[in-house]
């Protein structure tokens, strides 16, 4: 009898402890039904930006943004169909898409810097040569006028936004032959700095003087050259709408003016992007 009582009480306490953990799952689902919610869907590369925007916007205005990350193409399709208010795209819109009445609202620019170790003498690479380096066609720096040392191709892990952007801009998706895949920007910087003959790509904002930042087609990577469009390794972050911003519902218009405001620009700078303004 005593044993049964003991076992029962043990069971009871553990069950209570377990149920206490599962309480809040049901509450989260109810959020996306309100009419003033802004629905947004699209580019996975813009996930960091979109989520930061969503959180800050909710904290500042109390208005929910419902974000889905389905890919640029799917995002534009969704805004064309009218199932979302904003379609996120990490590439410029095609003429067809624009003809369908979709407005290309560029909110920010994403720039990628190419870095090499300090001892490397090559300071300029063409876009074509860069693609060849990353697909394994060019294997030695002497083919590009540098010293006779092998190129150690360093990149990011699959799923990384920077990797996606880099491969997309150069048109070498899934063709890259990496020697090392590293899972953070800082670690790429450290690896490139410490490995002779290394080349890597990182967001522009993190580059410091531990590495060389290579010119692409003779253009230095900096915010000005990204804004005027001359630097090649960049892509726009588009928040596309059906029709111009002024035709949207008030909540969406407010969101765009929020992005243009100082607070919005701060978010853009914080996630490592260049302002489109």
């Amino acid at each position: 009898m005593k044993k049964t009582f003991k076992l029962l009480s043990v069971c009871l306490i553990s069950v209570m402890a377990l149920t206490a953990c599962g309480g809040d799952a049901a509450e989260n689902n109810a959020s996306s039904t309100g009419s003033n919610v802004i629905r947004m869907s699209g580019s996975t590369s813009m996930e960091k930006f979109a989520n930061t925007l969503k959180e800050t916007y909710l904290a500042d205005t109390g208005i929910e943004i419902d974000c889905q990350f389905t890919g640029s193409g799917a995002g534009i399709q969704a805004v064309t169909d009218g199932t979302v208010d904003i379609g996120n795209s990490s590439r410029a819109l095609s003429d067809e898409e624009k003809a369908a009445g979709i407005a290309e609202n560029i909110v920010a620019l994403d720039g990628i810097g190419i870095i090499t170790d300090k001892a490397n003498t090559v300071d300029n690479i063409t876009k074509e040569d860069l693609a060849k380096i990353y697909t394994g066609e060019i294997k030695n720096w002497n083919e590009l006028g540098g010293s006779n040392s092998a190129i150690v191709v360093i990149g990011r892990e699959a799923g990384s936004g920077t990797r996606g952007a880099f491969e997309e801009i150069l048109g070498i998706e899934d063709k890259c032959v990496y020697a090392q895949e590293i899972n953070s920007t800082g670690a790429v910087m450290a690896k490139v700095a410490s490995t002779p003959g290394a080349i890597g790509y990182v967001s522009l904002d993190v580059i410091d003087d531990t590495v060389n930042c290579v010119k692409i087609d003779g253009i230095t990577a900096n915010a000005d050259n990204i804004k005027n469009g001359s630097y090649a390794l960049q892509r726009p972050f588009v928040m596309a709408t059906k029709g111009s911003i002024s035709e949207q519902k008030q909540e969406v218009q407010d969101l765009f003016s929020y992005i243009k405001s100082d607070k919005g620009q701060e978010i853009i700078a914080n996630v490592g992007l260049v302002s489109a303004e």
Partner: peptide, 21 residues
């Protein structure tokens, strides 16, 4: 390892140089 790799694979066509990683 990077230095050893450089000696061993300096003439290799297929080896992807990885700087000793």
């Amino acid at each position: 390892m990077g230095r050893i790799e450089k000696i061993l694979f300096s003439n290799s066509e297929n080896h992807v140089m990885n700087g000793g990683a």
